[in-house]
Amino acid sequence: MSMTQESRPVRKVFTTRAGGVSAAPYSSFNLALHVGDDAAAVHANRARLAESIGLPLERLVFMEQLHSNTVTYVKDATINPVPATDALVTDQRDLALVVLTADCVPMLLSDHEAGVVAAVHAGRMGARNGIVAKTVERMVQLGARPNHIHALMGAAASGKNYEVPVNMAQDVEDKLPGSRTTTTKGTCGLDIRAGIIRQLLSLGVEAIDADPRCTITDEEFFSYRREGTTGRQAGVVWLPKL
């Protein structure tokens, strides 16, 4: 039996840079207020995002992302953005958790049977320092089971193009095994998504999907590495009302 959109127990959405009102270099669907874009344009884009997913804007919860490994449980959108955190977890319905990225890995996690979802900003430092494992742990505390969790990763810097110094790559590899790689140029690189997949499997999370596209080379996405001053795309996850 096919499942209609209305009956899906959890929703996960990723945006691209298209479809907004921001001017260059933020053109056009920039959703971040902290990158120098006109605030009115960002608010208009956020309102458009909310409308497109069928939720009031005040039900979208953003983060003050700092590349930390801090995980925060939220029960409402009273404090928005949530300060100094790089992962949000909730068991509340119609509360959309938003992660903003421009090369870092945006991760959306859910256990719809337990009614728990999470949005994670898994950049190099956060992933190295265990942000994903800490988020899974927090979800389990709320009733989730690792073998029932689905993980979805959006477009991010790929191992083919994410060049880093050798000592940096080895440092991340020591903490997040499976992430060190060689780029297409033959230089030392990092594939954060590969390291996260290995970590998730070790935690018992086996339902894993990833958008393979690389933000550094795919101009459908904002990329800090490619552009410097640029916008941010979003990953959004929420539990719809029953």
Rank of each mutant, 00 (worst) to 15 (best):
P25I: 02
T230A: 03
T184R: 10
A207K: 15
R198W: 05
Q92A: 11
G143F: 10
D209R: 07
T78S: 13
D91C: 11
A23N: 11
L239W: 00
A155M: 09
V172W: 04
Y73N: 10
A151C: 05
T4A: 14
A44F: 06
G154Y: 05
N161A: 14
V21P: 01
V236T: 07
M168C: 03
R8A: 14
N147D: 15
V120I: 15
E220A: 13
A41M: 10
R17S: 03
Q65V: 06
E113P: 00
A157Q: 08
V140L: 03
L176K: 07
P240A: 05
K12C: 00
A96N: 04
R198M: 12
P56A: 10
P165G: 08
L88R: 12
R128F: 08
A122I: 11
V35E: 03
R8H: 06
L190P: 02
E206N: 13
K241V: 03
S28Q: 12
T229K: 14
T229C: 00
P83K: 03
K75D: 15
G204V: 07
F221N: 07
A23F: 02
E64A: 13
S110F: 00
V21I: 10
S52E: 15
G143K: 15
S223Y: 02
E206Y: 09
H150Y: 08
K75G: 10
G126D: 06
Y162H: 12
L57S: 07
N45L: 08
Q233M: 15
D94V: 00
S52H: 09
D91Q: 14
M139C: 00
L152G: 01
L176A: 09
R93N: 07
T90C: 01
I53F: 04
V42E: 01
F62A: 08
Y26C: 10
E113C: 00
L108E: 01
K75H: 07
T229Y: 00
D218R: 08
G126W: 04
G235L: 04
K175S: 10
I196L: 02
V237K: 07
S28H: 12
K185D: 04
K75R: 13
L49G: 04
M1C: 09
N45S: 12
L60P: 02
P177R: 15
L100E: 04
E64D: 15
L201P: 01
L57C: 11
L97R: 09
T4K: 14
R145D: 00
R145V: 00
L66I: 14
T4P: 05
P177H: 12
D38I: 13
H43L: 11
D191L: 06
